[in-house]
C-alpha cells in the first residue's frame, strides 16, 4: 500500500518549467492535480522532490492548494532526495511512489531505491484506480494526514531548539493523551491502525471491522483507544489495545498498536504505564504482552522493556510471539499528569 507520493515539479506537477517563466510560472497539470487531490483525500501523503529553488515549492503549494508533507528542493540526486523524504516521514521505501517526467531521474531512483514504485506522469494519472493507492478504509484521521504531517514539521522545529528532557518537551507543547474505552464509532480507525502500524505494533494479526465490533460486545475483553493532541495539532485516535481480562489473574494484552506518528510523543509509554496501574488496581498479579520480535518493531520492544516487561526465555504465545511480562508488585511506571485515563486519575 502506497503511503506517500513524491512528485517532480517541472513538466510533471506543473505544466511547464518553473524557472523558464519567472513572472508567470506555469499552471498545475490538470490531470495530475486531480490525481494528487484524490490521493490526498484518501490519506496518502504528497511530497515534492525537484531541482529548483525553494520558492518553487511555495508556488506549487499555493497553485495546487495541496498540503505537502515534505519538500526536497535543490540540485543533488533525486534518489537522495526521495531517501531523505522517506526517512523524515518514517515511511518505508516500498510505501513510496515517485513520479517524474525525466527518464534518467526515474532510472536513478529505481536503481538506488528498488522498492520505490517509479511512475511516469502518464501512469500517475491512472494511479487512483490502482489497488495500491486505494486504502481499504478512510477515516477522519486518514483524510487529515497531510495536515498532521505539517504540524509535525513545526513540532520538530520546536523540539530542535528545546533543551530539556523529552517529558519536559511534551509538557511544554501542551501534550494531551487520552486513554478511553473504545466506542462503536472508533471501529474503522482501529481497523486502519491494525493494518497500517508496524513500528509500534506487538504483531497481532490485522483485525477486521467485524472482529472489532464483536470484541466490543463480547465479555471478557476490554478494547481501549488512545487519542493524542498538543498545541500544534490534534492527531485524533493514534492507538488501541485489546486486553483480555481474567478476573484477578494475570492481564494479557494480545493487541498493542500505535501509529508511528505518535513515536517520541509519550503515547506508548503512557498506555503501558496505565495498563500496569489499572491491572494492579484490579488485583491482577502480572501483565503479559505477546510481541513479535523483528527488526521493524524495535520501538515497541524498547517501550516494553522500559516499562519493566521482560521476555521469558522460550515462552511463546499460541501464535508464536515472544511473551513479555512483568509482576505488578513493587513500583509501577509513573503516569504523567497530561494523560487522562478511563474513570479519572489512575
Amino acid at each position: 500500500m502506497i503511503k506517500c507520493v513524491v512528485w517532480d515539479i517541472d513538466n510533471t506537477l506543473l505544466d511547464g518549467v518553473f524557472l523558464e517563466s519567472p513572472d508567470q510560472p506555469p499552471p498545475p497539470d490538470a490531470g495530475l492535480l486531480a490525481a494528487a487531490r484524490e490521493l490526498s483525500d484518501r490519506g496518502i501523503l504528497q511530497a515534492l522532490a525537484s531541482r529548483n529553488p525553494p520558492e518553487a515549492a511555495r508556488y506549487v503549494q499555493q497553485a495546487t492548494g495541496l498540503q505537502f508533507a515534505a519538500a526536497e528542493l535543490g540540485w543533488d540526486s533525486k534518489a537522495d532526495a526521495v531517501g531523505r523524504i522517506a526517512a523524515s516521514l518514517d515511511i518505508a521505501a516500498d510505501a513510496i511512489a515517485f513520479v517524474d517526467d525525466d527518464m534518467l531521474e526515474r532510472a536513478e531512483v529505481a536503481a538506488a531505491l528498488p522498492d520505490v514504485l517509479v511512475l511516469t506522469p502518464e501512469d500517475a494519472v491512472q494511479a487512483p484506480d490502482w489497488p495500491d493507492f486505494s486504502p481499504p478504509v478512510l477515516t477522519q484521521e486518514g483524510r487529515r494526514r497531510g495536515e498532521m504531517y505539517q504540524a509535525r514539521l513545526r513540532r520538530q522545529a520546536e523540539a530542535a531548539s528545546f533543551g530539556g528532557s523529552r517529558e519536559e518537551f511534551l509538557r511544554h507543547v501542551g501534550t494531551r493523551i487520552s486513554i478511553a474505552a473504545a466506542r462503536p464509532q472508533d471501529v474503522p480507525r482501529l481497523h486502519e491502525l491494525s493494518v497500517r502500524t508496524h513500528q509500534l505494533n506487538s504483531g497481532g494479526a490485522a483485525l477486521s471491522e467485524d472482529d472489532l465490533s464483536a470484541l466490543l460486545l463480547a465479555g471478557g475483553h476490554q478494547v481501549v483507544t488512545v487519542a493524542l493532541a498538543d498545541n500544534f495539532g490534534d492527531d485524533g485516535l493514534v492507538g488501541g489495545v485489546i486486553i483480555e481480562r481474567n478476573g484477578p489473574g494475570p492481564w494479557r494484552v494480545p493487541v498493542v498498536m500505535v501509529s508511528c506518528r505518535a513515536l517520541g510523543r509519550g503515547v506508548l509509554d503512557a498506555l503501558l504505564a496505565w495498563m500496569c496501574r489499572a491491572a494492579a488496581a484490579s488485583g491482577a498479579s502480572s501483565l503479559a504482552v505477546p510481541c513479535l520480535v523483528n527488526a521493524r518493531n524495535v520501538p515497541m520492544r524498547l517501550a516494553l522493556t522500559t516499562a519493566g516487561l521482560r521476555a521469558d526465555q522460550g515462552e511463546l504465545s499460541a501464535d508464536g510471539r515472544t511473551v513479555f511480562s512483568r509482576s505488578l508488585d513493587g513500583p509501577l511506571p509513573a503516569l504523567p499528569a497530561f494523560v487522562s485515563v478511563p474513570g479519572g486519575p489512575a
Binding site: 528532557s165 523529552r166 513500528q199 513515536l263 517520541g264 524495535v298 520501538p299 517501550a303 522500559t306
Partner: peptide
C-alpha cells in the same frame, strides 16, 4: 538519559550502521 522509544531506536540504528552490531537482534 531517559531514552524514549524514538531516540532509542535511532541510537540502535546508528550503532548498527557504524559498528555493524545489531543490538536489538
Amino acid at each position: 538519559v531517559g531514552l524514549d522509544s524514538l531516540a532509542g531506536t535511532l541510537l540502535l540504528r546508528r550503532i548498527q550502521r557504524e559498528f555493524g552490531v545489531d543490538v536489538a537482534a
